[in-house]
C-alpha cells in the first residue's frame, strides 16, 4: 500500500491554493513525495497573528510572502520543483491548473472555495477540500462536475472563529492522505464529508447526496 501511494505521487503536479494553517502543513507533507512540481498559490504575507498555527510563519518571515517563504523552506528538503505564485488562485489565473493533476483547497472563504471547485471542474482535475473552524474541521474529495460545496455551504459566506495549531495540522494530514489516495485511484472521501471534532475525538463521515 505504501509503495502504491508513493508511486501515485511520482511525477505528478499538485497545486495548493492557500498557504495559511492548512496549506502550510499540507505543503510540508506533500514536499516529501517524488512529485514533479508543487505549485504554491497565495497572495498574502505572514502576519504576527499567524504565528500560533501557521507552520512557516516565524520572526524571519513576518511581512514576507507566504508563497515565497513556504517555497524557500520546502526547497531545503524537497526533490520536487517548488513553484511559488504570489497571487490568489481564481478564474483570472486559472491556467495555473492546466498541467496539474490535483488541487488542494486550503483557502479560507466560501467564495474562494466555490470558485476553486468550479476551476477544478473546468480543468478536469480532482480537488481535495478541507476547512477548519474553531476546534473542528472537514474534508472531502471532489471530482469534476460533482458540485459538492454548494450542497454543503449554500452560497452564503460563513464567519469563522479562532482555531489552534493542532486543528489545521490534523486536517491537512487527512487532506494529504486523500490526495495520494485520489492519485492512486483508491477509495476516498468522494461524496462523503469527514468531520473531525478534536475536543471529543469524534470523527464522523457523512454521506452527501449528489
Amino acid at each position: 500500500m505504501i509503495e502504491k501511494l508513493h508511486a501515485a505521487a511520482l511525477g505528478k503536479t499538485i497545486v495548493i491554493a492557500g498557504l495559511g494553517g492548512l496549506g502550510g502543513y499540507a505543503a510540508a507533507e506533500l514536499a516529501r513525495y517524488s512529485l514533479d512540481s508543487l505549485i504554491l498559490v497565495d497572495a498574502d504575507t505572514f502576519e504576527p497573528s499567524n504565528m500560533d498555527r501557521q507552520l512557516f510563519c516565524s520572526t524571519c518571515t513576518i511581512g514576507k510572502s507566504k508563497a515565497l517563504s513556504t517555497a524557500q523552506a520546502l526547497a531545503k528538503f524537497s526533490s520536487a520543483k517548488i513553484v511559488p505564485i504570489e497571487e490568489n488562485l481564481s478564474f483570472a489565473n486559472g491556467s495555473l491548473l492546466k498541467d496539474a493533476d490535483l488541487l488542494l483547497d486550503c483557502t479560507d472563504s466560501v467564495k474562494s472555495k466555490l470558485e476553486l471547485e468550479a476551476l477544478a471542474t473546468f480543468y478536469g482535475i480532482p480537488m481535495v477540500h478541507a476547512a477548519i473552524n474553531n476546534l473542528y474541521g472537514q474534508c472531502t474529495v471532489i471530482f469534476p462536475n460533482d458540485n459538492v460545496l454548494e450542497k454543503v455551504y449554500g452560497k452564503k459566506e460563513r464567519s469563522t472563529l479562532p482555531t489552534l495549531s493542532f486543528v489545521p495540522a490534523m486536517l491537512a494530514s487527512i487532506q494529504v492522505a486523500e490526495a495520494l489516495k485520489t492519485l492512486a485511484g483508491m477509495p476516498t472521501l468522494r461524496h462523503k464529508l469527514l468531520i473531525l471534532d478534536t475536543i471529543n475525538n469524534d470523527l464522523r463521515i457523512l454521506n452527501i447526496k449528489v
Binding site: A131, I132, N133, R158, T160, L206
Partner: peptide, 27 residues
C-alpha cells in the same frame, strides 16, 4: 442540504435523519 428542499418548511417523516452543522470555512 435543506436549502435544496423547502428550507425550514421541509417536512419530516418517521426515520428521517437531520444533521445540524456549523460551517467550517477557515484555512
Amino acid at each position: 442540504n435543506f436549502l435544496k428542499l423547502k428550507k425550514s418548511r421541509t417536512k419530516l417523516q418517521k426515520g428521517d435523519t437531520v444533521f445540524i452543522m456549523s460551517p467550517a470555512s477557515g484555512g
